[in-house]
Design a protein around this nucleic acid. Structure first.
Lengths: 236, 236
DNA sequence: CGCAGCCTTGACAAATGTCAACAAACGTGG
DNA sequence: CCACGTTTGTTGACATTTGTCAAGGCTGCG
């Protein structure tokens, strides 16, 4: 287990404040693994044996019911996922699969809970992380319930633009099919939604998006900080 | 400030594990207030000055955007709400209003954060609470994205039935208009959805629901523990 | 070149929202 | 206790949104 692999983890807000001794203990049972793209990491309903930390690549959190499935969020480096299940010693509510070739650290859930019980700093860091995750899901919920799919797409593009530094042209972060699922619509609908944004100055060439008229698009999208806040890291 | 008013609070999983001294300190700045029905308690976007604890009555958490509004959840005694905002010292993401005459304890957020920093037991209790809230929202999100409104209603009725002890007949917990909003549909649609469940043995008389054919309804609803778990207390 | 995967398009169907009218339930004041 | 007005729920007709299915285009790669 190369220590260097854990350096990135130690730097995370989640692990930075904890005592050295406890971090070392946590890492003793942990290991880092490389996965190719499109690999199932966990299945919803399974017991949460490991806290996962995405070191590089990207992971899709999704869920299935009655033959349908939906992407709930994407986890990007460096952040953790299924923290809540780990803490509660409960089963996963979401499945996870790699979107790209990914490097992932696996920390035994039992160890996390153990250290959590004895290290107050770690416990406090977990609170902060969980509160952030909670607020991210609440925002997503508001997005879903208060907006039409066209409005969701428009606001998504504005958020993505901001994350990319604000330039008028930028690229989508993943396949349109998955984007559609994240936004809560079908792929066909997303195609039409893109065309539906043309009147507001949005042009699409493959995965390249250009916002030709910022003011027009914003007037339509009506972005709101209470829904569209930029997450510090990807929500987990 | 009657100590008796705080007895119920002390018994909450959130406050039970903390040191007496710290609990006393927390309650020093707290106060309990009675509110009539339909009173706005907080507005989304406001800074989170107080952690709220519903002692009796019921509180609706809702949100508004662009002239639309939606109920996200209902908080019932005894539980807290806006814990995440309090911890992160961030603004509220949801508004809150009383549904009925309610008794609510208000604990200064600054005190909560202060005690949180020095009492590891309290910090751990908060983690557990937040993890539960997080999982509740994730479940709600899956419900929304994976099910049609008819399926959501069917599963909601099954959950409500279970919470009421499993009898075939039981009452709705609030107005149909609000139920519709919680389920993510319009009031008119809810009316039709109730009729749409008649073929599966559901009858409605005012707010009285009867599930005439349990097996039939469950075959249609396909309830799933990863979406429809019964919250220990109401989600907050 | 030709297959495979992703995206788009069109025609259509189903789900959901909107508006208007009405009915039923409730609370209040006479 | 009744009459009234307000609120809540229901219904019908219709518009909009969204999903489904099938076909075809584009692209990348063997």
């Amino acid at each position: 287990m190369p220590d260097s692999a854990f350096a990135g983890i130690r730097g995370l807000a989640l692990f930075a404040p904890m005592a050295d001794k406890n971090f070392t203990a946590l890492m003793r049972g942990a290991y880092v693994q490389n996965f190719p793209a499109q690999i199932d990491l966990i299945a919803e309903g399974d017991p949460s044996d490991f806290l996962h930390v995405v070191l590089s690549g990207a992971v899709d959190l999704f869920s299935t019911w009655n033959g349908r499935d939906t992407s709930l969020t994407t986890v990007r480096p460096i952040s953790t996922f299924i923290l809540a299940a780990t803490i509660k010693d409960a089963c996963y509510l979401m499945s996870a699969r790699t979107l790209e070739k990914s490097r992932i650290a696996l920390i035994p859930s039992r160890d996390v809970r153990e250290i959590f019980d004895i290290d107050g700093n770690f416990a406090r860091a977990i609170v902060t992380e969980l509160a952030q995750c909670y607020r991210a899901v609440v925002r997503a919920q508001k997005d879903l319930k208060l907006r039409t799919s066209l409005e969701r797409l428009a606001n998504y593009l504005l958020r993505l633009q901001r994350r990319n530094g604000g330039a008028a042209t930028f690229g989508l972060e993943f396949e349109k099919r998955r984007l559609a699922s994240v936004l809560g619509m079908t792929a066909e609908n997303l195609s039409r939604a893109f065309k539906g944004l043309q009147p507001y100055g949005v042009t699409v060439e493959g995965s390249r998006i250009t916002i030709g008229n910022q003011a027009d698009l914003e007037r339509f999208a009506k972005p709101n900080p209470l829904i569209d806040a930029i997450p510090a890291y990807g929500p987990a």
